Every structure is written in structure tokens, then in C-alpha cells.
Amino acid sequence: MRQYETMYVLLPDLDQEETNKLVTKFQRVVTENGGEIIQLQEIGKRRLAYEIAGVREGYYVLMTYQGSTMIAKELERMFAISDGVLRDLIIRIG
């Protein structure tokens, strides 16, 4: 299994319940496909380096996990179709 680090930025105007739902949804993608989450760090609201679609802040989440390439591809797909995600980045670290 390979190790990945994923950073994603959620819309800042989501309430806490919606934010928790999205974080849990992305965690489940990893665990239900045979992966293992090593670390999940909800960094919180931070100012973006530049404005994205009129938004100046974002809710940052960093997730480190082990799993197959299929998990990373599924996460990319989920990020693309989820309304609350501003940006995402998946990096293979091992």
C-alpha cells in the first residue's frame, strides 16, 4: 500500500454540521476501500493566498492515509462532484 497526503479546502460558510459531514464522507472513501487513515488534521478557517470564485477564506483539512491508487482516484472524483469543496491536492508520499 502507498501512503498519500491530501489537503482539501472547504467553503467557509458551511455550518459545522455540513463541514463534519463532508470530512466524514471523505474519511469513509478511504476506510471503505481498504485504506487506513494515519492522521486527520482539521486546520480550520484560514485566509486563502488568492481569491477563488469570490471567496477569500477556506476551511482546511489535511488527511494522511495508506491505500491503493484507486482510493486516490475515487477521492479526486468525490472532490470534483462535491459542492462544498473549493480546492484539493493529493500527493503520494511513500
Score class of each variant (00 low, 15 high):
10 L>T: 05
14 L>C: 10
2 R>H: 14
9 V>S: 00
72 A>H: 05
26 F>D: 01
55 V>F: 09
22 L>D: 03
92 R>C: 13
25 K>H: 13
69 T>V: 12
46 R>E: 12
47 R>F: 09
2 R>M: 10
93 I>C: 10
18 E>V: 10
65 Y>S: 08
58 G>Y: 02
80 A>E: 10
1 M>L: 11
26 F>M: 09
79 F>N: 02
21 K>P: 07
30 V>E: 03
44 G>W: 01
9 V>C: 02
57 E>A: 05
88 D>P: 00
73 K>R: 15
17 E>H: 11
89 L>E: 07
23 V>P: 01
85 V>M: 04
4 Y>T: 00
62 L>I: 13
88 D>V: 01
89 L>T: 09
66 Q>H: 12
58 G>N: 07
13 D>R: 11
31 T>I: 12
42 E>M: 08
43 I>G: 01
26 F>L: 11
80 A>R: 15
1 M>A: 13
52 I>E: 06
43 I>S: 04
74 E>V: 02
1 M>D: 10
64 T>S: 12
25 K>R: 15
90 I>K: 04
54 G>V: 10
5 E>P: 03
80 A>K: 15
36 E>S: 12
91 I>M: 15
60 Y>W: 09
21 K>R: 14
9 V>R: 01
61 V>F: 06
16 Q>W: 06
44 G>K: 00
31 T>W: 07
94 G>F: 10
87 R>L: 06
87 R>Y: 05
37 I>K: 04
31 T>E: 14
17 E>R: 14
83 D>W: 04
9 V>W: 00
82 S>M: 05
27 Q>K: 15
20 N>E: 15
88 D>I: 00
10 L>S: 03
26 F>Q: 01
56 R>C: 08
3 Q>E: 15
76 E>Y: 05
63 M>R: 05
34 G>E: 08
84 G>F: 00
71 I>E: 03
9 V>H: 00
55 V>M: 08
45 K>S: 09
37 I>T: 08
62 L>P: 08
39 Q>V: 13
61 V>Q: 04
21 K>L: 12
1 M>T: 12
70 M>I: 10
72 A>T: 05
68 S>H: 11
32 E>W: 09
30 V>F: 06
53 A>K: 15
7 M>T: 11
91 I>C: 10
15 D>P: 07
